[in-house]
């Protein structure tokens, strides 16, 4: 059976991380599981953890008054859930809910932030891993806003 250090460092988010750093961040990690329908976190809540999905599917949702929640993204094996933990005041901007049985590594955000603050080289490495996720979500959001599959406004 794999120990948590192996699991963390083999996860795509931390893949290739320097061995020493790996030991550092593993100190913040623990295994968690979520049943289908269970929330990882809620909008407005404190961003105390980030989650590295090992197995399962997690939906990001925004509650709309009087309507079912709108799901705008699903995350899967190898994805990172939660980016608000890196930016003050560390509050979640949406809900995250497990759609299927989900196994993940929960990283203590306070712990990880402190280690990144203490060692800027580690902090820069972690940020470089986070930035592509943010930009790709930005691009995806642009495409969603454009509603490219929607009916054209004018006829042919």
């Amino acid at each position: 059976m794999k120990n948590i250090a192996q699991i963390v460092c083999e996860h795509p988010f931390f893949h290739g991380l320097d061995g020493e750093f790996c030991d550092l961040v593993c100190g913040c990690a623990r295994n968690v599981r979520f049943n289908p329908g269970e929330y990882l976190f809620h909008e407005g809540g404190d961003a105390d953890y980030l989650y590295l999905i090992r197995y399962g599917q997690v939906a990001l949702e925004i509650a709309v008054p009087g309507k079912p929640s709108v799901r705008f993204q699903t995350l899967h094996d190898g994805d990172l859930v939660g980016v608000s933990w890196v930016l003050p005041p560390y509050h979640w901007a949406y809900d995250a809910r497990a759609i299927t049985l989900t196994r993940a590594i929960a990283m203590d955000a306070h712990c990880l932030r402190k280690k990144c603050d203490d060692d800027p080289v580690l902090g820069y490495d972690v940020l470089k891993r986070l930035l592509p996720i943010l930009t790709s979500r930005l691009h995806a959001t642009q495409m969603q806003i454009l509603d490219v599959y929607g009916a054209p406004e004018q006829p042919e």
Binding site: A59, L60, S69, R71, F72, Q73, T74, M143
Partner: peptide, 12 residues
């Protein structure tokens, strides 16, 4: 691109 709660598939 988006879905409500009963969609079990991928969103994105």
């Amino acid at each position: 691109d988006h879905a409500s709660g009963d969609w079990p598939g991928k969103i994105g």
